[in-house]
Design a protein around this nucleic acid. Structure first.
Lengths: 331, 331
DNA sequence: GGCAAAAATGGGAACGTTACCAGCAATTCT
DNA sequence: AGAATTGCTGGTAACGTTCCCATTTTTGCC
């Protein structure tokens, strides 16, 4: 554990400069020296100390993923989990090690910590306060926003096309003859939900359908809130013939509520969700939804961050992954 | 970004030794000096360089989580995701930063990398080759095994009580009058599945029921394999009246297969799974299963690792979390 | 074989921190 | 009052690398 470059140098009979050259760049060194060094390193089971290296190169080869976590399940949330998985895989593939942290406070204290540890860059997933983004941006920290966007010039982000996805979903329901469509909406502080909200409104208006306030129910993006809000709709004077939920968890909660009322899906009420989480296919009826390529989002976030680290501005900073409606049994 | 301890010292009018003392231990320094240093640090927005600190203290405050990933979804697997979430949370609570890596090869190459980065310890989740464990153990690396155990003296691990959980589940089925009980089994290389296998066999034998080879179907621990293996059982000459699946994903696959045959659950065939993943409650019928406290497993793994790092041997090295049968609708 | 150019090498500084030790001032004790 | 103890302080040496530059060795050419 304590074998250093000096030990390798001594055994190989060269200077530590030479060892360093062989082990890093390998240019400007003789074949004879290379062999001796490699042999010695192997024999001593030498592992370079990445800390010491980072001290002088100013690159740790580490990046951070920070997920803002207001509600408990976030890493294990069926929407984020595949994204995180993709980030883990892509980081490794690109030669970076990954710190993962989740923040409960909005001040991004994990970010401070990771910055002390000198990560090369940070991915902020889910919600983040724009002022925090601006602060780090001004500090020159390479960063990428994931599933959240901010109107600050020069900030890279990856989102999916929330607006168009919602628009297409609602438009589909209208094409199917629905005119009285409920909307179970997640918290509007989160940009993705405001976009989905706008998509819902626009689709109705473009089809000449008046937007009704009491069809729109806003709550947390959880199964239980989906259930609760759907029950509200089911107990209103006029029951919608279809419901668009701004995420699948809410949609699943809604389905539970509808089935409990002994109403048939999709005959009595059609349901369509958003996110395309894995378990949407397992419930009955299988959930119609808006597909989001979560793996792609994770991959892209890492690639964008690495571009940011390398000041490679060739790639576009703003990436909006297309979304598409998937019709299964619930609509 | 480039403000160092030296800058703080200059502004505060003291030596860098004093600054270091104030910022780390804060013992043996005057109140006057402390104030000046704290003020200067604040003013300059000084952030200590954790790399330089780690160089000399030999402690990075970082730990690594390595998940062996033979099949694609692992981090986003409904069993592992809550464990990982608990590990993230607990690490932060205990003041450690967490690297997460997943390994596709069994040689644990991520471990090598993390060791170069001088993590203070490593949690190995899921399967790992005992020879790798032994190698790192001998190297003196603090490590903890999670959801896997190895018969090597002095290795800490956290598992759940696979044997007893399986035993109790099968015993329950027997008490309900079943005597011809199928078993959908995950890969036996993984220790948790061999334990569950043993529990199945023991429960039958203790009840005087002969273990029938053709009732036991071994495959991957996936939904699709659960489906496939269940179909095999459904097409055999004698169809079991109940099925025990060694994990919930297989159980859900089995339920799909049974329902497709238009058989009733639990009337025609009872099903019981293992793991208690979230979505077991959402399918129909709600899945009976063996509950595993995944959050506890994650927490304990981190705590054990930190004990290991601090050479604190007061806590038990072998932690087996109790499991309990939860009966819902499928049995 | 001599000389210039190129290639390879080694020594030391640097990265930013903490650990160690010696020194100095202030306080306490006899 | 002098000695002993205590509390603070600053200088310097680490930690293990890579970078820079000067030096040595090799190569290429006539």
């Amino acid at each position: 554990m304590k074998v250093t470059i000096k030990d390798v140098a001594k055994l190989a009979g060269v200077s530590k400069s030479t060892v360093s050259r062989v082990l890093t760049n390998s240019d400007n060194c003789s074949e004879r020296a290379r062999q001796k060094v490699l042999e010695a390193a192997e024999k001593l089971n030498y592992k370079p100390n990445a800390l010491a290296r980072a001290m002088i190169t100013k690159k740790t080869g580490n990046i951070g993923l920070i997920i803002y976590q207001k509600h408990k399940p976030i890493l294990s949330h069926p929407f984020y989990a595949p994204i995180v998985e993709a980030i883990v895989d892509t980081s490794r593939k690109k030669g970076y090690s990954l710190f993962i942290a989740s923040d409960q406070d909005i001040n991004a204290s994990s970010a401070e910590l990771l910055l002390e540890k000198r990560v090369d860059g940070i991915i902020f997933a889910s919600f983040i306060d724009p002022s925090i983004v601006l602060k780090y941006k001004n500090l020159g920290v390479p960063l990428v926003l994931l599933n959240n966007s901010v109107d600050i010039e020069g900030i890279s982000y990856v989102t999916c096309d929330n607006y168009l996805g919602a628009y297409k979903a609602v438009n589909y329901l209208v094409q199917k003859g629905h005119t009285y469509i409920g909307f179970l909406c997640g918290p509007l502080q989160h940009r993705s939900y405001t976009e989905r909200y706008k998509g819902y409104v626009a689709a109705l208006e473009d089809n000449g359908i008046k937007v009704q306030e009491d069809l729109i129910r806003i709550g947390e993006s959880t199964l239980s809130d989906g259930n609760r809000l759907m029950n509200q709709l089911l107990h209103s004077t006029r029951i919608p013939t279809a419901v668009f939920a701004s995420n699948d968890m809410m949609a699943i909660g809604a389905i539970k509520a509808i089935k409990k009322k002994n109403l048939n899906i999709p005959r009595d009420i059609g349901v369509i969700g958003f996110d395309d989480i894995e378990f949407g296919t397992l419930i009955e009826p299988a959930l119609s939804t808006v597909h989001v390529d979560k793996t792609k989002m994770g991959e892209l976030a890492v690639e964008l961050l690495i571009d940011e680290i390398n000041k490679n501005t060739s790639t576009s900073k703003k990436n909006i992954i297309p979304t598409e409606v998937i019709i299964r049994e619930s609509s």
